[in-house]
């Protein structure tokens, strides 16, 4: 499997002297759904900004599809890696939805016809096609979030990074977003989602990266999130379903990490 993201010994210190990343190394293979987890200040957002080329490594290196990110390749990187910011009000800045979604494709230098096509297709993908001429301030938070994602989709990146995509969304909007992420996964996109939501990560991700104080604490499948000592060290918690079953299961059963797993255990007991 092709490695689309390779991070090697990445260090980054903010101008105020705070170390955000301290020797981070990991790889992500193409088409994977990866959850990036860690407590506040663990370095999740800083890492995402490096992967989009907004920050350049002070030490170590980042490679996207085999190409090293440097000042000369950062423009190319942004055509391959799309970043959805946590607060859609930071990202959706144009006067109308259509103008905002067209911002990225226009920066790619695409002709007007192609820009129009991509805008329509991206808005259709997030279910916002009828909102083209709406000013963003008239939209709800969830709708703005979808527009922010459409703005990135319109650039047709291969890798999509999302910073806390579920934050402040109501359950219905969260469900819609999860469906959209599934659809993007089906299209073969590589997805890296920074989140605090253990339940979401446990049920959605194929791989989990856990950061602590700028270092990689663990990298593996979502079963990692059932390791109580490790999640506690990372400033996280066990998934809710795992908490319910903790101490109740006989030997031979492992804690479930999502609703489907819990259902399977209950069905086994009922039989």
């Amino acid at each position: 499997m092709e490695q689309v993201i390779v991070v090697d010994d990445l260090h980054f210190k903010y101008p105020d002297g705070t170390w955000a990343l301290r020797g981070l190394s990991f790889t992500v293979t193409r088409g994977k759904k990866v959850a990036l987890m860690g407590h506040n200040g663990a370095g999740k957002s800083t890492l995402l900004w490096h992967l989009n080329g907004l920050f350049l490594p002070q030490q170590g290196e980042v490679r996207i599809e085999g190409r090293l990110i440097t000042s000369s390749t950062e423009k190319w990187v942004r055509t391959r890696v799309g970043l959805v910011f946590q607060d859609p009000d930071d990202q959706v800045f144009s006067a109308t939805v259509k103008e905002d979604v067209a911002f990225g494709p226009r920066n790619l230098g695409l002709p007007p016809g192609e820009v129009e096509k991509r805008v329509r297709s991206a808005l259709a993908a997030v279910g916002m096609l009828g909102y083209q001429n709406h000013p963003p301030q008239s939209l709800s938070y969830g709708q703005k979030k979808r527009i922010a994602i459409a703005g990135v989709l319109a650039m047709e990146p291969e890798i999509i990074l999302l910073d806390e995509p579920l934050a402040f969304l109501d359950p219905a909007a969260q469900e819609n977003l999860c469906l959209l992420l599934e659809e993007l996964h089906r299209q073969g996109k590589s997805l890296l989602v920074a989140t605090h939501d253990v339940d979401f990560a446990a049920s959605w991700a194929e791989e989990v990266l856990i950061l602590k104080e700028g270092k990689l604490l663990a990298h593996g499948d979502p079963e990692l999130l059932l390791n109580e000592d490790m999640v506690r060290e990372a400033g996280l918690r066990l998934p809710i379903v795992a908490q319910i079953f903790r101490g109740l299961l006989p030997e031979g059963f492992t804690l479930p990490r999502d609703v489907q797993g819990a259902r399977r255990i209950l069905q086994a007991f009922l039989k």
Partner: peptide, 14 residues
């Protein structure tokens, strides 16, 4: 916020 907006613009190829 203005700093974040600027970075959001850069992230989309500005």
């Amino acid at each position: 916020r203005s700093e974040r907006i600027y970075f959001a613009m850069l992230a989309r190829g500005f």
